[in-house]
């Protein structure tokens, strides 16, 4: 019995070994060949691609292989340049039917294929893809949603900003990714963001506040003010930071009021905000905070003091009760001057 089992196992494994060895060699050879081919063809096609991108010169008739390679080169190029070159690329991809093909896959392929199609549409530079991509911000698969978001960013789709904000609020897409993209699109006056400010979920309010701070202008400061007294601590903290980014005129006083907030993270955020605004009136309060408060707010206060008035900070560091945060901030100031 035992022997039979072993013989069977041995044979099965030997077969597997041979197959894997074969796979290894085949993959190796294929990869090498692809690399070499790609390198050669890409060299040839780069000139063609550059001509298309810069001067709208249509490429000559190409073999299917060359056409695919050209498409690859163009995808890379579409990432390297801005301006009218992208329109040429979009026209080309439309002409060769790539946009249609990818849109079809997006509509009905397997999840990973949809994600790939969504991604590629961003590089194809064609604005025609925007509505489908916005629709797929609600795709059941996370990878597809992320790819759609990223491509909408690449396409500079300002009309999609609202959809992206909604997807962020519902946590359908990663916040960090979407935020970067919204900034790239430059979508400031988006009504969806204002709607977030009054959402029932504090996390959504927090997201809205952050976004407004990053994308808004000084005129939006009034919308953010009421959130400085929001019941949720993280919303208040984000409001402090957002207001400092908008750098509106007279918020120093309201921010200073937050220095005595019950939540240490809010105090820390207020300190950071005042440092950002270089609010000299806050200096005394900040130096005091840096010496007596708990870790995070004290640290933020010391750091803010350094930004507002480095000399005053260095002077404070010589005091006996300065504490570790003022000492660290003073060290940083001094080291930066060496």
């Amino acid at each position: 019995m035992g022997t039979g089992l072993f013989v069977g196992a041995f044979i099965a494994l030997s077969v597997a070994a041979v197959l894997l060895l074969g796979l290894l060699s085949v993959r190796r050879l294929r990869l090498l060949r692809t690399e070499r081919e790609l390198a050669r063809a890409a060299d040839r096609l780069r000139g063609v691609a550059a001509a298309l991108v810069m001067d709208g010169e249509r490429p000559p008739a190409l073999s299917t292989e060359d056409a695919e390679l050209l498409a690859r080169v163009l995808w890379d190029f579409s990432r390297q340049i801005t301006g009218s070159g992208r329109e040429e690329i979009a026209e080309y991809f439309e002409e060769v039917g790539l946009v249609d093909r990818q849109l079809a896959i997006l509509a009905s392929g397997a999840a990973w294929r949809r994600a790939q199609a969504a991604f590629v549409l961003g590089d194809a530079c064609s604005a025609r893809a925007i509505p489908a991509l916005v629709e797929h911000l609600r795709d059941p698969d996370t990878a597809v949603r992320s790819a759609a978001t990223r491509s909408l960013g690449r396409l500079r789709a300002t009309e999609a900003a609202g959809g992206i904000v909604d997807a962020m609020a519902d946590r359908r897409i990663p916040l960090a990714l979407a935020c970067g993209i919204l900034i790239e699109i430059g979508a400031g006056g988006v009504p969806e963001i204002t709607a977030l400010l009054v959402h029932t979920d504090p996390r959504s309010r927090s997201t809205g506040v952050q976004l407004l701070g990053l994308l808004g202008s000084a005129a939006d400061a009034d919308r953010l003010r009421p959130l400085l007294t929001d019941p949720d601590g993280s919303v208040r903290a984000q409001a402090c930071l957002a207001l400092s980014r908008l750098a509106a005129g007279d918020i120093g006083e309201t921010l200073r009021a937050r220095l005595s907030d019950a939540d240490p993270l809010v105090r820390a955020a207020a300190a950071e905000a005042l440092g950002e605004l270089q609010d000299e009136d806050a200096l005394d309060d900040l130096l005091h905070m840096a010496a007596v408060d708990v870790f995070d707010p004290a640290r933020a206060a010391a750091s803010a003091s350094a930004r507002i008035d480095p000399e005053a900070l260095l002077a404070a560091a010589t005091g006996l009760d300065a504490g570790q945060h003022i000492a660290e901030a003073a060290t940083r100031v001094w080291a930066a001057r060496q």
Partner: peptide, 11 residues
């Protein structure tokens, strides 16, 4: 990056 080289050279 040969792509950048190609683009800049062409222009």
């Amino acid at each position: 990056d040969p792509g950048i080289v190609a683009l800049v050279s062409y222009k």
